[in-house]
Computed example of a mutant assay.
Amino acid sequence: MWARKQANESRAIPRDYLDGVGAFPERLPWLILTGRFPHDCQLMVDQWAEWALGVVEAWPMT
């Protein structure tokens, strides 16, 4: 799903900082704070999509 793909791609960014090669290391505290919001939104979209798929699959075919 889209949200899971986005979350997986975003994982490389913090890894760069842990390896000491992240861009703008002085901005790290703000990046951590603001990076949490899109991460949580991506997880929420993924959870909603799984729920919605289950609902739609239970609908009658008519």
Rank of each mutant, 00 (worst) to 15 (best):
35 G>Q: 04
58 A>R: 15
47 Q>D: 14
4 R>T: 10
5 K>I: 12
47 Q>I: 04
31 L>M: 14
45 V>I: 09
50 E>P: 00
34 T>L: 15
56 V>D: 02
29 P>T: 07
43 L>V: 07
48 W>L: 15
1 M>Q: 03
19 D>A: 15
11 R>E: 10
40 D>I: 10
7 A>K: 01
12 A>E: 09
57 E>H: 02
16 D>L: 12
23 A>P: 00
62 T>I: 05
45 V>C: 07
17 Y>I: 03
60 P>G: 02
51 W>F: 15
10 S>H: 08
41 C>R: 14
19 D>G: 00
57 E>Q: 14
35 G>V: 05
55 V>Y: 10
40 D>W: 08
60 P>H: 06
27 R>H: 10
30 W>Q: 12
60 P>A: 02
20 G>L: 12
11 R>M: 13
31 L>R: 01
56 V>H: 02
39 H>P: 00
37 F>Y: 07
25 P>Q: 06
16 D>S: 02
3 A>R: 05
48 W>P: 00
60 P>Y: 04
49 A>W: 05
50 E>R: 10
9 E>K: 11
41 C>H: 04
34 T>Q: 07
44 M>I: 05
6 Q>E: 07
41 C>D: 06
48 W>C: 08
48 W>T: 06
58 A>L: 12
43 L>M: 13
22 G>M: 08
9 E>D: 11
38 P>N: 06
22 G>V: 02
51 W>R: 11
26 E>V: 00
28 L>T: 06
4 R>G: 05
29 P>D: 13
55 V>P: 01
55 V>F: 13
60 P>D: 11
12 A>F: 07
47 Q>K: 03
13 I>A: 12
13 I>C: 01
5 K>N: 04
39 H>N: 06
8 N>M: 14
43 L>D: 03
28 L>E: 09
18 L>A: 08
51 W>V: 05
53 L>M: 10
60 P>I: 06
56 V>W: 06
24 F>T: 01
33 L>M: 10
45 V>S: 05
54 G>A: 11
41 C>V: 12
23 A>I: 07
49 A>E: 15
2 W>L: 15
15 R>I: 11
31 L>H: 03
54 G>T: 02
3 A>F: 13
58 A>V: 00
34 T>G: 01
57 E>C: 05
41 C>Y: 03
41 C>A: 14
15 R>S: 13
44 M>L: 14
12 A>N: 03
54 G>C: 08
7 A>C: 03
40 D>Q: 12
58 A>Y: 01
22 G>C: 07
16 D>W: 04
40 D>Y: 08
27 R>K: 12
39 H>V: 06
54 G>K: 10
40 D>V: 11
27 R>G: 13
22 G>N: 04
3 A>G: 15
24 F>N: 07
5 K>D: 08
42 Q>N: 14
56 V>A: 11
43 L>E: 09
33 L>K: 10
48 W>N: 03
61 M>Y: 04
46 D>R: 02
29 P>W: 12
25 P>N: 05
1 M>I: 09
17 Y>P: 00
11 R>Q: 10
40 D>N: 09
19 D>L: 15
50 E>C: 06
6 Q>N: 08
53 L>K: 05
62 T>P: 01
61 M>R: 11
